[in-house]
Write a protein that binds this DNA or RNA. Structure first.
Lengths: 205, 205
DNA sequence: GTCTATACCTCGATAGAC
DNA sequence: GTCTATCGAGGTATAGAC
């Protein structure tokens, strides 16, 4: 991943091979599987093979771990999404790139589905930390809104741009509850069904 | 509410004026506001003005409270939905009734938005209790699928029936994160936008 | 950077009086 | 049906040696 290495060198993302990076990876997995509240610092420490007290050399608190998981994931997702959009041609394909990318962040195998942590554990953050994370989220969301605006100007959008984004965000964020990566419906099929729902009544094939 | 009184008399739902009913109401509110894990039995007891030890005269465990909140909510929602569908005429209006009802369960003022507890706290249940609740959920979902099937047979449905239900479920369950009941967009507006997304390309006005 | 040891707290749940 | 009192478990976080 070219983007990942660039972000690591810019200091925006922790090197996954560092002790801190390994902790973040394992914490993200555990938060996704069991939820933040039910994951203990002992669990996280055990997953990387250290004692629980050693964690606090790398993070100031358990919430600090969740904050880091979320902010680094958002920074990474934003770059991946930006790249995917730039590689697509035309508003219809750029919007499809948004849908496909977010589905991959949410249920795909590569990113180990960390988007679901951002969604499910939002409430576990204090309001101060929420404000902190929202800065990154706004950048991500703007990429979506730009793509939707282009779609609208091309006459391909059926509903209101902002409402559409929110309805689609919900539809995508809910997929972990039912979608099976190895099922009959492929991720690409699902992306097409979703695109069709947004651009309804317009011929998008 | 005629349905509520009938369900109470059938013993399917706890009388809200009983001590147990008051506990369930307050627990549901707290679970919605703070989440199940962050709500303590002391919080719930305090909300109805008793001591925490007294709760265990009415419930065998904290999970038993969540189970009861969820199953009674589902039983109630199912009857409300069934009634709303039966009062609507034609597939388009019956589907709109489904959307409107579920939006009300999720963000409406009357039901105090308990649907969001069913969604957010699912993972906090043991798998045994999940199986228990799924029985009620299946009945609720079948009402949706029947309505969608009628819509499909009327040639009004754009995508696959099952995928559509899941995408729409996500869209609706996500609304608590952004929808403001006192905002410019009314719940009825939102229901119409959602219906339009499902029946895309078909003239549904 | 990790260890051991532990302080300190809060939680769910119980027991028995009233 | 509620109270008081409390138990035991398990949580986050700290301190200081190595």
């Amino acid at each position: 991943m070219g983007q990942l290495n660039a972000l690591i060198q810019q200091g925006q993302i922790t090197d996954p091979d560092s002790p801190r990076g390994r902790l973040l990876d394992q914490a993200a997995q555990l938060f996704r599987q069991k939820g933040y509240e039910r994951t203990t610092v002992r669990d996280i420490a055990g997953a990387v093979g250290i004692q629980s007290g050693s964690i606090f050399h790398h993070f100031s608190s358990k919430e600090d771990i969740l904050r880091s998981v979320m902010s680094e994931a958002l920074i990474y997702f934003t770059e991946i999404l930006r790249d995917a959009i730039s590689r697509a041609e035309g508003p219809r394909d750029k919007l499809l790139a948004c849908i496909r990318s977010e589905l991959q962040f949410t249920i795909g195998p590569d990113t180990t589905a960390i988007m679901s942590v951002l969604i499910s554990e939002w409430r576990s953050l204090s309001s101060e930390v929420q404000q902190d994370i929202l800065q990154y989220r706004d950048v991500y969301e703007q990429l979506w809104l730009d793509a939707l605006q282009d779609t609208e100007e091309a006459g391909l959008l059926a509903g209101d741009m902002f409402v559409t984004r929110r309805l689609i965000a919900g539809a995508i964020h809910w997929t972990p509850y039912w979608f099976q990566l190895d099922g009959e419906l492929s991720l690409e099929d699902l992306a097409m069904e979703t695109l069709q729902m947004i651009c309804c009544g317009k011929d998008i094939r």
